[in-house]
Write a protein that binds this DNA or RNA. Sequence first.
DNA 1: GCGACTTTGTGCACACGTTCACAAACATCT
DNA 2: AGATGTTTGTGAACGTGTGCACAAAGTCGC
Lengths: 228, 228
Amino acid sequence: MIADPAARRDVPDATVARLPEYLRALTDLAGRGVASVSSEELATAAGVRSAKLRKDLSHLGSYGVRGVGYEVEVLAHEISRQLGLAQNWPVAIVGLGYLGHALATYSGFANRGFHVVALLDRDPEVVGKEIAGMIVGSVDDLEQVVTGRGVAIGVIATPAASAQEVCDRFVAVGVRSVLNFAPCVLSVPQGVDVRKVDLATELQILAFHEQRKTESVREIRPLLEVSP
Amino acid sequence: MIADPAARRDVPDATVARLPEYLRALTDLAGRGVASVSSEELATAAGVRSAKLRKDLSHLGSYGVRGVGYEVEVLAHEISRQLGLAQNWPVAIVGLGYLGHALATYSGFANRGFHVVALLDRDPEVVGKEIAGMIVGSVDDLEQVVTGRGVAIGVIATPAASAQEVCDRFVAVGVRSVLNFAPCVLSVPQGVDVRKVDLATELQILAFHEQRKTESVREIRPLLEVSP
DNA sequence: GCGACTTTGTGCACACGTTCACAAACATCT
DNA sequence: AGATGTTTGTGAACGTGTGCACAAAGTCGC
């Protein structure tokens, strides 16, 4: 703990949520051979304002050079490290419907510090099948697989009815990070993080705003219809 | 615009983002025959605190009865209406890899005010196949399909490289709500809403917290190892 | 009808997040 | 070396979201 100048603790949640996007933008730039970026350019690539980007990065430490900008490689490496992508997190996916299938074959994981080490399903029809170069195991072996392969992150892509049970079993064998795609609330003890992704939720939020827009049009239209 | 007591405008974004979860919890309760809930019970079911729930609901109007609680059916209907789920939004999905497949077959859409009216892909191998009872069309016909079937919400499940092009074409024919699953930033004109869902992002956020937890353990362990 | 009890709706204080605006720190050119 | 120009890092102001605590408004029992 000697050579660590960074602030370490106290990175705001809102900032953490944006770091992956910054990292993606930086990886893009690096791929196109760009060596250096200003906060303005990087912010545009990440879809935020430059002031926000700079404040976010300031929480990680001081990796830019005034009057110049940021070295793409250096900053990407630093964000990677802070996000914990230096290590290769072993991930288990439970539930191999189309969504689980999509997650298992998603290449975005492998090259970003994640390694899918287990696919589990309940359905005997699915167990034994090969998906993305792996054999699907039975969910009955969850405990053995998680402990045996050191799974750190559990992904739940089952129907809502099974989600809590799978979650409980994950937690019971020491998993403290869960990504939940089932449309239900998971209750977990303190110290366990659950992030939820619900496809229907996102559509509903869009629908809310879409409706407001259509209503506005309906309110304006009478004014327009005076001149047909 | 006479019989509308609700506040209508000024529903905070944070509240809108939670309404779908409340609606889901209410639908659950209704399915189990529950007729009335207190804010405390509903909050637990939705994974929030009761004070937050009540404040959220207060933005929609006053649909509870003091001393009693909320009527499940009434509140569910009201939230549905506010979210704009009374109408049936026509949705088009572009890109039918595993993720697009998962979205197309996801039953959570149909019974929540959304209707998938078009599936489009670029790959001639995929075009013409039947998925979830629909024939996959060619992305070349995007404009015709969107205008012809009145698509209001566009879902992009293509690789990142094609996402911006598909988005531009959506916007050009009047789509103002886009759900983007491609790992890239989409630039759109003012008035168009884009929501982004990135599977890798969620995992990275989990990894960040997981790393912090493991670091804490490493700092504490020496103290524990004194007594083996 | 009235008191006791329950639960909502909300004013207020606080915490968190965002934006502005600028001094500090570097590069470059003369 | 000094003047000029550029871009970062950050204090300070502002806005949004959260949690507390309680008055208001209802039910229920007698």
